[in-house]
C-alpha cells in the first residue's frame, strides 16, 4: 500500500499497482524505494483523487465511455478496478451491463470536475485518463467518432464558426479524408 497526501491534506491508502498507473507516482516510488513516507500530491485535491484512485463497486460518473445518450447494452470493463485507470481496449476482463443508470450519472458530472480530472491526469501522467474515449466514441453504439455537436455539449463549447466557415471546414475535412 502507498500513502498519498492531497493538496487539501487528506491521506489515502492506495494499492501500489493502482497508483503505479500514474507515471509520476511510479517514478516517485522508484526514487524513494521501499518507504512508508507519504507521497505528496500538491496539485490534486482529495475529491479528484477519489475519482482517480478509488476502486468502485459499479460504474461511476467518471467511468465515461461518452455514450451518454445511449440506452443500449454495451460492454464495459470490470468495475473491480478504478475504471478511470483502465487501459481501455487492452483490458480483456470485460462484462456486459446495462449502462443507462451509468449514463445518467455521467450527465451529472459537472464541467469543473471534468476539467479537474483532465488536469490531474496530466499532472499524474495517466495516459488512459486523458478523456480520449469521450471524444472518440459516438453517441450511438458502434457509431464511430463523436460528432462535433456532441463534443460541444460535452465540454460546453460555443460554436463560433459562421455558416461559411463551417462549409469551409467541411471542405477541408473532405480533402483531409481523401489524403
Amino acid at each position: 500500500m502507498v500513502l498519498l497526501v492531497t493538496s487539501d491534506n487528506e491521506q489515502f491508502q492506495t494499492e501500489k499497482d493502482i497508483v503505479e498507473r500514474s507515471v509520476l507516482i511510479k517514478n516517485m516510488l522508484e526514487d524513494v524505494g521501499e518507504s512508508d513516507q507519504p507521497i505528496p500530491l500538491p496539485n490534486v485535491s482529495s475529491s479528484v483523487l477519489k475519482k482517480v484512485t478509488q476502486p468502485s463497486t459499479g460504474p461511476t460518473e467518471i467511468d465515461v465511455r461518452g455514450r451518454y445518450l445511449s440506452t443500449a447494452s454495451t460492454t464495459v470493463e470490470s468495475p473491480s478496478r478504478p475504471p478511470i485507470l483502465e487501459q481501455s481496449q487492452d483490458e480483456t476482463r470485460k462484462r456486459t451491463t446495462d449502462i443507462s443508470e451509468w449514463d445518467q450519472k455521467f450527465i451529472t458530472v459537472d464541467q469543473e470536475m471534468l476539467f479537474e480530472i483532465i488536469l490531474a491526469a496530466n499532472y499524474l501522467d495517466i495516459k488512459s485518463l486523458l478523456c480520449r474515449r469521450w471524444l472518440q466514441d459516438g453517441s450511438q453504439h458502434d457509431q464511430g467518432a463523436r460528432p462535433p455537436e456532441e463534443i460541444r455539449k460535452l465540454f460546453n463549447i460555443v460554436n463560433d464558426f459562421t455558416p461559411e466557415e463551417e462549409a469551409q471546414i467541411k471542405k477541408e475535412n473532405e480533402w483531409a479524408e481523401d489524403r
Binding site: L135, A145, P147, D160, N173, E177
Partner: peptide, 9 residues
Amino acid sequence: SLLNIHAVS
C-alpha cells in the same frame, strides 16, 4: 475523431 474535433470551434 480528429476531423470532428476540427469542426467543433
